[in-house]
């Protein structure tokens, strides 16, 4: 389909964008890459009255090294992050994650600020920002504020951004050379919406016991936010043996709380498609996603471990 009618304004600076958002009110939307927004508008799921096009704000398209990591401008395309030597050097996990976003034609347009502001379930950038406690810089009528990832995501397709605010920058901490990392996801087809996405980091003591480990999951929280796993703290001081990982897997399955609505959706597919296979009925059920969460988490830790040991 085609988008419903709207009025359009292209702006060339952050202050122009904020002024436009104030002038046109809550029924206005920013368009950056438009890879989610245009899809929703074509499907008439969203009907903004005003579109504020920020593609002309060239100064928001950058990747810079900072004192303790990376600063990425909101208008930076996924493809730029994917190819950046700076990202490879300072925060390779981010590069690993970005390769999972859709297809290269979409990555040529989609932006980091747009992905975070959209907060779609399972979105790769959201999971990584939450895992690494990245900071999101937003500018509005009252100036700039810095929002920690933990506070930024507040619900399905909802963020802490106020109506006239926009994301301008995302700040990621550097991963130390000794940190192992992994990003994995399960999708119906490569490039599609993840059923579960997982990011993990790992640091070891000299005796190979766990010094520090973090896991974040996408599309498993009934609140609709990237989820940071608590059970991972039980690994501290332990070696990553089969038993320890099996124990962690059980704990993660018990801890995560996927949206049960997906279960009824899965039943709907089963009932009306005439397909009765296990795969369809469990494709995105809460039970299935709990199992995927624990399996992917353990696999991610294993990959992180092998990275530290030089196996990858």
């Amino acid at each position: 389909m085609k988008p419903a009618p709207f009025e359009y304004l292209a702006v060339n600076s952050v202050s122009e964008a904020v002024t436009a958002l104030q002038r046109y009110g809550p029924n206005s939307r920013i368009i950056a890459g438009g890879q989610s927004l245009m899809q929703e508008m074509n499907l008439r799921q969203t009907r903004p009255a005003f579109l504020v096009d920020i593609n002309g704000i060239k100064e928001l398209d950058y990747i810079r090294e900072t004192a303790n990591g990376l600063a990425i401008g909101a208008l930076t395309r996924h493809r730029t992050v994917e190819r950046s030597e700076l990202v490879q050097k300072i925060c390779p996990l981010l590069q690993e994650a970005v390769k999972h976003i859709a297809h290269f034609q979409i990555r040529n347009r989609g932006t980091i600020g747009g992905s975070l502001s959209h907060n779609a379930p399972g979105a790769e950038y959201g999971v990584v920002t939450r895992l690494l406690d990245a900071e999101i810089v937003a500018v509005g009528p009252d100036g700039e504020r810095i929002i920690p990832a933990e506070k930024f995501f507040i619900g399905h397709f909802k963020t802490d951004l106020k109506p006239a605010e926009m994301v301008t920058e995302v700040r990621f901490p550097a991963l130390s050379k000794e940190t192992g990392y992994a990003f994995l996801e399960v999708t119906r087809r490569h490039g599609h919406i993840p059923i579960v996405s997982t990011a993990a980091t790992l640091r070891l003591n000299p005796d190979d016991t766990v010094k520090e480990a973090h896991i974040a999951l996408g599309n498993v929280s009934s609140k609709g936010v990237p989820y940071k796993v608590k059970a991972v703290s039980r690994l501290y001081g332990q070696k990553l043996t089969q038993d320890v990982l099996a124990d962690l897997a059980k704990a993660i399955e018990a801890e995560v709380d996927p949206d049960p609505h997906a279960d009824s959706e899965a039943v709907f597919v089963k009932q009306f498609s005439g397909i009765t296979s296990r795969r369809v009925s469990e494709l995105s059920s809460a039970t299935y996603r709990k199992q995927v969460s624990s399996a992917l988490s353990c696999r991610a830790l294993n990959i992180a471990f092998q990275r530290i040991k030089g196996g990858i």
Partner: peptide
């Protein structure tokens, strides 16, 4: 809706979906 790729074109040399671009 950006899924099928039939409308793919080049804009400034980069492949993109023309149905997801105004």
């Amino acid at each position: 809706q950006g899924v099928c790729g039939a409308c793919t074109i080049l804009i400034d040399g980069q492949a993109i979906r023309s149905c997801l671009t105004l």
